[in-house]
Amino acid sequence: MTSHCQEIEEEQMSRIEKGDGNGCHGGIETVICTSPGIVCLTQKLIAEIIGTYFIIFSGCGVVVVNVLYDGIVTFPGICVTWGLIVMVMIYSTGHISGAHFNPAVTVTFAVFRRFPWYQVPLYIGAQLTGSLLASLTLKLMFTLTPKAFFGTTPSDSSGQALVAEIIISFLLMFVISGVATDSRATGELAGIAVGMTIILNVFVAGPISGASMNPARSLGPAIVLGRYKGIWVYIVGPFVGILAGGFVYNFMRFTNKPLRELTKSASFLRSVAPKDNDSNSTKS
């Protein structure tokens, strides 16, 4: 959808340069037609709100259901639910907004010049809005007990939870960078790869830290339910891990470019070099 928005903007600029104007006749239509960038940005923000909403609603909702209904879902079921809902939302909205759903991912994309900085606050605001709305929905739907808290808190020490969040967030961004930003990867498999990564991360770190990997995922429930124990872990950990994962993958991709160029050059030289048979026949 980003490329479609760019096409709209280029077409609009072409019309203006030709003196055709905006092609509208007045009223609100004129405002919309003269601001295609605003329309596209609004679509992206709506997609981020909806995507984040359903990720938190489904992922946190299954936690509540599992507690209130005597473990009917089970821990593996919770892990799979988190991975599936992320995968579904990536395929549903990825072509519109890029399917960030995570402030740390948005900031990391901006750091590596894959996302405009001026949109970062808007994206983060949309993600937090989706998380807050989903958390509020769950609070209104269920009669929550203290055990049914669907936020994230360290199960043991904050240090242990912080290390877990950094490691799993690193892996998440490393996979995202590989399947979603590298042109050599198969982009159609991005949703599956990211979803499977989240399932694995929740399996490993869920009992330790809750496997947040996302400041919006932790802040929404914490604000709605008023429980902030160890909340700094779920802000610092994902940002550190995701930035590190993005840096490592981009470093690998950068250092791989000369190797690719050398390989292409070598292949070209082999293709134009005279063969031994040809040289022998010439001499004879």
Rank of each mutant, 00 (worst) to 15 (best):
V67F: 01
L68N: 01
L68G: 04
Y69N: 05
D70G: 08
G71M: 04
G71C: 09
V73Q: 03
T74H: 10
F75S: 08
F75R: 12
P76R: 08
C79E: 06
G83H: 11
L84H: 11
L84Y: 02
I85C: 05
I90L: 06
I90T: 09
Y91H: 14
S92P: 02
T93R: 02
I96C: 02
I96G: 07
S97T: 07
G98R: 08
G98N: 07
A99K: 06
F101H: 05
F101W: 08
P103Q: 14
V105E: 01
T108C: 13
F109D: 13
F109P: 09
V111K: 04
R113L: 10
R113Y: 11
R113M: 06
P116A: 15
Y118N: 11
Q119C: 07
Q119A: 12
P121S: 04
P121N: 00
L122R: 02
L122E: 03
I124E: 00
G125W: 00
G125T: 04
A126H: 01
A126E: 00
Q127P: 01
Q127F: 06
Q127N: 03
L132S: 04
L133H: 02
L133Q: 04
L133G: 00
L133A: 08
T137L: 14
L138Q: 00
L138E: 00
M141C: 13
L144G: 01
L144S: 07
L144Q: 02
L144F: 05
T145L: 08
A148S: 07
A148V: 01
F149H: 08
F149A: 03
F149E: 05
F150Q: 01
G151Y: 05
T152D: 11
T152I: 12
D156Y: 09
S157F: 14
S158F: 11
S158L: 11
Q160T: 09
A161W: 05
L162A: 04
L162V: 01
V163L: 11
V163H: 00
A164L: 05
E165A: 06
I166A: 03
I167E: 12
S169Y: 12
M173P: 14
M173H: 15
F174Q: 03
V175E: 08
S177D: 06
S183N: 08
A185D: 07
T186I: 14
E188P: 12
G191L: 14
G191C: 14
A193G: 12
V194W: 14
V194G: 12
V194T: 13
G195Q: 10
T197C: 15
T197M: 15
I198F: 11
I198T: 13
I199A: 01
I199P: 11
N201C: 14
N201E: 13
F203V: 13
F203E: 04
V204G: 02
A205Y: 13
G206R: 09
G206T: 15
I208S: 06
I208V: 12
I208R: 06
I208G: 05
S209R: 12
S209Q: 06
S209G: 07
